[in-house]
Design a protein around this nucleic acid. Sequence first.
RNA 1: GAUUCCGUAGCUCAGCUGGUAGAGCAUUACACUUUUAAUGUAAGGGUCCUGGGUUCGAGCCCCAGCGGGAUCACCA
Length: 507
Amino acid sequence: MEQLSEQEIVRREKLNEIIRWGINPYPAELFEVNTNAADIKQNYERDKLNYKTVSLAGRIMSFRDMGKASFAEIQDSTGRIQIYVKRDEICPGDDKTLYDKLYKKGLDIGDIIGVWGHVFTTKVGEISIHVAGFKLLAKSLKPLPIVKTDAEGKTFDAVSDPEFRYRQRYADLIINPQVRDVFVQRTRLINSLRNTFNNQGYLEVETPILQPIPGGAAARPFITHHNALDMPLYLRIANELYLKRLIVGGFEGVYEFARDFRNEGMDRTHNPEFTVLEIYVAYKDYFWMMDFTEAMIEKVALDLHGTTKVQVADNTIDFQRPFQRITMTDAIKKYAGVDITGMDESDLRKVCKDLGIEVDPKLGKGKLIDEIFGEKCEHNFVQPTFIIDYPEEMSPLCKKHRSKPGLVERFELMVNGKELCNAYSELNDPIDQKKRFEEQMALMERGDNEAMFIDFDFLRALEYGMPPTSGMGIGIDRLTMIMTNQPSIQDVLFFPQLRPENVPVGE
RNA sequence: GAUUCCGUAGCUCAGCUGGUAGAGCAUUACACUUUUAAUGUAAGGGUCCUGGGUUCGAGCCCCAGCGGGAUCACCA
């Protein structure tokens, strides 16, 4: 058992005292609420008659005790509001216990209370609740870190320790209101996307997270074991192959907000579990998907900010349509100064050497091109830019280009120097798909541990015939990071992955 | 996984050349019936991340470990 701090002992003593007074510090019955902090602040001045008998609940965030009267702030899900508690109002008779004991000695910052009374404006002009009565709804036993804010909104002693904030997100959310805003924005972003898809009549679906073959992307999976079937299962690294099976099945537009899992490094932009939106639409190609994607993202910016311009660190990014489009070959020509058209593996290897890019001898042609692009081009695309027409080898699920040999009909959307979306004219030729899988197997044997496994059931599905389809995937965490100007993925995930705390030594 | 910085009161932080642990907020007590980073007076609160080592003496120096951040590698 952990040692209790002085303040925690004091709070437990208060709790026992409250119980001795015959008050349940954790009452079961509901507390009727008829307004909230934001509603009062926004509408009281205009409609004072409506605020004669308000009732609301929240957490005590500060006390200003003036003796026989006192002020406090309570915080609900919409913000904070000041309450004014006058001893002789809440204790009209001779018995002042409620105020002198329960209110002044029993309550702490962090406690959750319900209050009722009328709204008024103080001498200093702050809209407040003149309390007629209050009820303790939940006693807080752990002292909440205190963050103070002055009249200009300047904060003092803000809790900034990332370990505290990520491990105890519940406390972070209570004391840092801007953290809450980020997550509200995240949900609004997802709602915006969902509205776009539903308005088109596309169907939101759910596909397996536990997969016998971790397909649809190139990444190291988490492995688990099913006891009853006595077989290994993988947490999905992507859901692409399942959504395409549904297109084969006759749905013409499907999408899923998918939690994917990859057993790889963690950093500012990578968490082992993350969210990807994938969407597949039949009878479309990647040009259509580019139009759809830029409209979709422009709408997200407008829904969140009311403007297409979004400030991300030092850059203002404008999501107004249309986005720039450039082929990968032209991008490399522009930023690396090399025309790679028609080059073979050894030519590319020489280009890498000349550009000072170190490459693994195991890499094939496609990966070499990807290295050049990643090293020399990617960071230049700050404003939204579609990079189109990728080498075939690094895109085994993508249809061959209609006119450019060796390339595929693929685009990625770059924003703020990083990849945000990935989309194809989907490969629906089952014989070509089988060949591409086999090439992946060859790469795997050559030592590329991210090459894809062959999924024979997916090939069987393609053999029934999949309509020409375009599909797109977008990293929701990264889109949220951009749209909310957060530098770390940990700031857009409620509970980012951390090592367990307090592991005993020697076990 | 590598490199590097960091870990002191509930929170934010200071701590000199190695010599008995400091501040503000929070907490406790008292005062105060319109305050707002409320105020005034007084008090209490510490496994200096953990374990070793050097030293007469370690929050500080050395070694190892744990946790976190940043950069790199892998990746989205």
